[in-house]
Simulated scan of single mutants.
Amino acid sequence: MTEQPTAAPGATPTGTPADQDFLRLDGQICFSLNAATRAFGGLYRIVLKDLGLTYPQYLVMLVLWEHGEMPVKELGRHLRLDSGTLSPLLKRLEATGLIRRERSTEDERSVHAHLTDAGTALRTRAAEVPRRIATATGFRLAEIRDLQSRLDRLTTALDTATESGL
């Protein structure tokens, strides 16, 4: 006698998840990404404490260490942050002496962010941060790169869906 294949629990006879399963919290990719983001936030809070940086400030510093001085508007594009979020962040970094903001001499409406000597020097101490984070994930470097690639593809697909109005 031939055994008939059975559907997985919660699946329809065709093998696709039943509609009610789509509404389970543990089935939501957005929740998994949010939970991972919150876990990263907690870890970064610990790792960045010695540098005196918050995670968003660290991201600003990463962009400036990589690209050097740039217009605040361009910095916002790199970080995917609007000026309302970025401005207070830059103000706090400026108050700590890590960056300075200056109006452009060519276009008075444009403000540029510059690293100070202290901001540049902090890069050496920050070099250990990615290693500590990578170690904490328990992933091999190849797994981390693969995950980054998949997340980049996901971000691009979601941006495209948003732009098209899905």
Rank of each mutant, 00 (worst) to 15 (best):
residue 54 T to F: 07
residue 99 I to D: 02
residue 87 S to F: 04
residue 100 R to S: 05
residue 119 G to A: 09
residue 117 D to E: 08
residue 134 A to I: 10
residue 10 G to H: 00
residue 51 L to K: 12
residue 138 G to P: 09
residue 57 Q to T: 10
residue 118 A to W: 00
residue 39 A to F: 12
residue 73 K to S: 11
residue 138 G to A: 08
residue 50 D to S: 15
residue 4 Q to P: 04
residue 154 L to I: 14
residue 107 D to A: 06
residue 78 H to V: 03
residue 159 D to P: 00
residue 66 E to Q: 15
residue 131 R to G: 13
residue 50 D to K: 14
residue 86 L to A: 00
residue 122 L to W: 01
residue 45 R to K: 13
residue 76 G to H: 08
residue 92 R to M: 08
residue 19 D to L: 10
residue 71 P to A: 12
residue 64 L to C: 03
residue 96 T to V: 15
residue 66 E to N: 15
residue 77 R to Q: 10
residue 15 G to Y: 03
residue 119 G to C: 04
residue 162 T to D: 10
residue 38 R to A: 08
residue 2 T to Y: 03
residue 37 T to H: 15
residue 157 A to Q: 11
residue 80 R to F: 06
residue 164 S to Y: 04
residue 160 T to R: 14
residue 65 W to H: 15
residue 104 S to H: 04
residue 150 R to M: 15
residue 34 N to M: 09
residue 98 L to W: 04
residue 138 G to S: 07
residue 74 E to P: 02
residue 140 R to M: 13
residue 16 T to K: 11
residue 67 H to R: 12
residue 84 G to M: 09
residue 53 L to Q: 14
residue 40 F to Q: 13
residue 77 R to N: 14
residue 11 A to Q: 05
residue 125 R to M: 01
residue 13 P to A: 07
residue 127 A to R: 14
residue 81 L to K: 15
residue 146 D to P: 00
residue 6 T to Y: 00
residue 20 Q to L: 06
residue 77 R to P: 00
residue 137 T to E: 06
residue 112 H to K: 14
residue 150 R to C: 13
residue 2 T to A: 02
residue 129 V to F: 05
residue 114 H to R: 05
residue 153 R to V: 10
residue 159 D to H: 00
residue 93 L to D: 12
residue 34 N to K: 05
residue 33 L to W: 08
residue 165 G to V: 11
residue 166 L to R: 08
residue 35 A to C: 01
residue 115 L to S: 03
residue 87 S to Q: 03
residue 60 V to T: 11
residue 106 E to L: 11
residue 64 L to F: 05
residue 74 E to D: 13
residue 149 S to L: 13
residue 102 E to K: 09
residue 62 L to Y: 01
residue 51 L to Q: 09
residue 41 G to H: 04
residue 120 T to W: 06
residue 101 R to F: 04
residue 12 T to S: 02
residue 97 G to L: 06
residue 132 R to E: 10
residue 87 S to Y: 04
residue 56 P to E: 11
residue 132 R to S: 07
residue 64 L to A: 01
residue 62 L to V: 13
residue 160 T to C: 06
residue 28 Q to P: 00
residue 163 E to V: 07
residue 25 L to I: 08
